[in-house]
C-alpha cells in the first residue's frame, strides 16, 4: 500500500490525503494547449483504470455500462463522494484541470475504497480541460447528469469566453447529455448565476425544471451541502444561486 513510512501527505488513521499537501492555484487557463494525455475518442477511454473492480480488463466491448454522471470542475471531489453512495449503480467521473487537485481526489477515492471495501468503486477522476475535450470522453447522449458547481466566475468581460457555461459550450453539453438529462449549476457570485441562467434559458435544447421537481430531487440538496465550496459559502453565511435545467429534444 502507499501509506508506507514517512508518507506525511496522508492522514494516518483514515488513509485519506491531507488537503494542505495539495495546495493548488485557484485559477487555470482553459485556453492554453494542454500537455496531458487526451483519449482520441470515447472508445479510447480506459474504464479499467478508472473502475478496476467493475471493469477488470480494458476491453469493455461486452459491457454496456457507461459513465453517466460528470462533475465538470469537480474540485476536491466532495459532491462525487456523496453521489457515489447515493447512486451506487451509476458510474461517475470528475473532471478537473488543476493537476494537484486531481491528484488529491485520486488519492481520496483510493483511500475511501480501501477503508470501505466494495464502496466507491463507481467513482473516478480525470485531469482534463473539459471545455476542449468533452467529446473525447463521452459519446452522444451518454450522460444523464452534468454538474457545474462553483465555477471560476471570470468577472472581466474580456474573460467571459473562459466561462465554463457559455452559449457555444452548451451545444456540446447538449450533445453529450441524453434527452431528459439534467444540468446542475450553482455559484455564490450573483452575476455569474444570472449569466448561467440566461445562457440556459436562451438555449433551445434546455428547459428549466419546475420548483416541485427541484424540491423532490435529492441531488439538488447536495449541490450546496456536499461541496467544499458550498460548505465554505455556508460557513460565511453567503448566498448561492442555482440553475437546474433539463435537456429536451427538438423533434419531440
Amino acid at each position: 500500500m502507499m501509506s508506507g513510512k514517512g508518507n506525511i501527505s496522508k492522514n494516518k488513521s483514515t488513509g485519506l490525503p491531507r488537503k494542505r499537501f495539495y495546495r493548488a492555484r485557484a485559477h487555470s487557463n482553459p485556453l492554453s494547449d494542454s500537455h496531458f494525455p487526451v483519449p482520441l475518442s470515447p472508445q479510447h477511454v480506459d474504464y479499467s483504470i478508472h473502475f478496476p473492480q467493475i471493469f477488470p480488463s480494458s476491453d469493455r466491448s461486452g459491457d454496456a455500462r457507461r459513465i453517466e454522471f460528470a462533475d465538470i470542475g469537480c474540485g476536491f471531489g466532495g459532491l462525487l463522494i456523496s453521489l457515489s453512495t447515493l447512486f451506487p449503480e451509476k458510474l461517475m467521473i470528475g473532471m478537473e484541470i488543476r493537476d494537484k487537485v486531481t491528484e488529491y481526489v485520486k488519492e481520496r477515492i483510493l483511500g475511501l475504497r480501501t477503508t470501505n471495501p466494495g464502496q466507491y468503486q463507481n467513482v473516478s477522476v480525470v485531469r482534463t480541460n473539459s471545455m476542449k475535450y468533452i467529446p473525447n470522453y463521452f459519446e452522444k447522449s451518454q450522460l444523464s447528469k452534468m454538474f457545474f458547481l462553483f465555477p471560476d466566475p471570470h468577472f472581466k468581460e474580456k474573460n467571459h469566453r473562459r466561462r465554463v457555461i457559455s452559449p457555444f459550450l452548451l451545444d456540446e453539453y447538449a450533445y453529450v447529455l441524453g434527452a431528459g438529462g439534467i444540468i446542475y449549476t450553482i455559484t455564490d457570485v450573483e452575476e455569474l448565476g444570472e449569466w448561467m441562467k440566461t445562457c440556459l434559458e436562451n438555449h433551445p435544447l434546455f428547459e428549466a425544471i419546475t420548483d416541485e421537481e427541484i424540491e423532490s430531487d435529492p441531488v439538488v440538496k447536495l449541490l450546496e451541502a456536499a461541496t467544499e465550496e458550498g460548505q465554505k459559502v455556508a460557513r460565511n453565511g453567503g448566498q448561492t444561486f442555482q440553475a437546474v435545467f433539463r435537456r429536451i429534444s427538438l423533434s419531440a
Binding site: L40, S41, P42, K132, Y133, P135, N136, K140, P167, L170, D171, E172, A174, Y175, H203, P204, L205, L250
Partner: peptide, 29 residues
C-alpha cells in the same frame, strides 16, 4: 487543430445559431 471534426445540423433558420450537434468524427491524432 485539436484533432476534431464537428458535424452540426444546419437548421432551416440558421441565423438563430446552430445548436444541434449530429456527431463528432474523432480518430485523427
Amino acid at each position: 487543430r485539436d484533432f476534431k471534426i464537428r458535424v452540426s445540423v444546419f437548421p432551416r433558420s440558421p441565423l438563430k445559431g446552430v445548436h444541434e450537434i449530429q456527431s463528432f468524427c474523432l480518430g485523427h491524432s
